[in-house]
């Protein structure tokens, strides 16, 4: 590791990825409605008393941007995989699309599963529950699961704290098994 921690935020469109990054960066809620193409911010944080650089990459959630997004995957330590609590489709797409995409391109990547817009749970019925999120976390083998709300600035810091921990903590380095047995056809 060259001292730079690279965190990439991925997830369906309109799940609040950019908002979350703004909330973390500027500590305020930015209510703007425009899609992102590709964006990255650099900021420095202090870990164990040493300053480290952290690069946050914001990506587009739309499937048209798959090719561009994948380029960001190459140099990435941790993925923050977002779904929005009020949109069950984004939750399903985590399993159907995102986890597969990440596994395919970076098989041993570290993932923080983030449920955004948790403030909407009080407003809408039928939101994705916490237990469902935890189950999904286990299923996609994410390293951690956080529910956050950019509007209320709730838990947003924790998302990125956990991402940083996952990046630097050797405990989270997943075991790799280089040897792959041939598949027994059952």
């Amino acid at each position: 590791m060259d001292g730079i921690i690279r965190i990439t935020v991925v997830g369906d469109g309109n799940t609040g990825k950019t908002c979350m990054l703004y909330a973390y960066k500027d500590k305020k809620y930015n209510d703007h409605h425009s899609s992102t193409v590709f964006d990255s911010y650099s900021m420095s944080i202090e870990i164990d008393g040493k300053p480290r650089r952290m690069i946050l990459t914001d990506t587009a959630g739309q499937e048209e941007y798959d090719r561009i997004r994948i380029l960001a995957y190459k140099e990435c330590d941790v993925f923050v995989l977002c779904y929005s609590v009020d949109c069950r489709i984004s939750f399903l797409n985590v399993r159907n699309k995102w986890a597969r995409e990440l596994m395919k391109i970076k098989p041993n990547c570290r993932i923080i599963l983030a449920a955004t817009k948790s403030d909407l749970r009080k407003i809408y019925n039928g939101c994705v529950s916490t237990s469902e999120g935890l189950r999904l976390k286990k299923e996609i083998r994410a390293n951690d699961f956080v529910e956050c709300s950019s509007k209320l600035l709730l838990n947003v810091d924790i998302v990125f704290q956990k991402a940083v921990i996952a990046a630097i903590h050797p405990h989270f380095v997943k075991k790799t098994k280089p040897k792959k047995e041939e598949c027994a056809i059952l």
Partner: peptide, 11 residues
């Protein structure tokens, strides 16, 4: 909200 921006169920 966010039509064309939000992804639908890909399947």
């Amino acid at each position: 909200d966010g039509i064309y921006r939000t992804s639908g169920n890909l399947a």
